[in-house]
């Protein structure tokens, strides 16, 4: 009967707590994961820039949070950075595959609706990585 592992409160500054067999009773993240996923999905499929960025930001942030809370990762900001990189890579792939071009007179050329979606994912990924960077610097300072 293995219960969920909560090895130690590594991400918490208050130090470790005992390993227990009890289940958690509240968590902030599930709702944000679900809403983030929904918003990102709408953003990508319908092609709404704002939704894509917000959705991915919310989704990746909450996933990083829940991983840290459950003790699966030690540093949530690193997890966030990894997730952001994945989104960025996906975005670049879509953007490139559908003929998006960087440089030239327009700086960023978005030839069609699909490349546009790629661009929104690139923005989402970049913003996520930025957040992760800022976050980890701040948490190192404190």
């Amino acid at each position: 009967m293995s219960k969920e592992r909560v090895e130690d409160g590594a991400a918490s500054s208050e130090g470790n707590r005992a390993v227990t067999d009890h289940k958690p009773s509240a968590s902030l993240w599930p709702m944000f994961i679900a809403f983030g996923l929904a918003i990102a999905e709408v953003g990508v499929v319908v092609g709404v820039f704002v939704f894509t960025v917000i959705g991915f930001l919310m989704f990746t942030g909450a996933v990083a949070g829940i991983l840290a809370e459950a003790g699966y990762v030690e540093r949530p900001w690193v997890a966030l950075g990894v997730l952001g990189t994945v989104v960025l890579a996906l975005g670049i792939a879509v953007f490139g595959a559908f003929g998006g071009v960087v440089g030239g007179t327009e700086l960023v050329a978005v030839p069609n609706a699909v490349a546009y979606r790629g661009l929104s994912m690139i923005s989402a990924g970049a913003l996520t990585i930025l957040t992760a960077g800022v976050g980890s610097i701040r948490s190192e300072l404190t």
Binding site: E4, A34, A38, V42, I66
Partner: peptide
């Protein structure tokens, strides 16, 4: 049992539904 095997995933599964309905 004390609870479900994965209580947080349980919550995520529920919270996917309201946006689903709205859409």
């Amino acid at each position: 049992a004390d609870d479900m095997a994965f209580p947080r995933i349980n919550a995520i599964a529920f919270w996917l539904l309201p946006p689903g309905a709205i859409l």
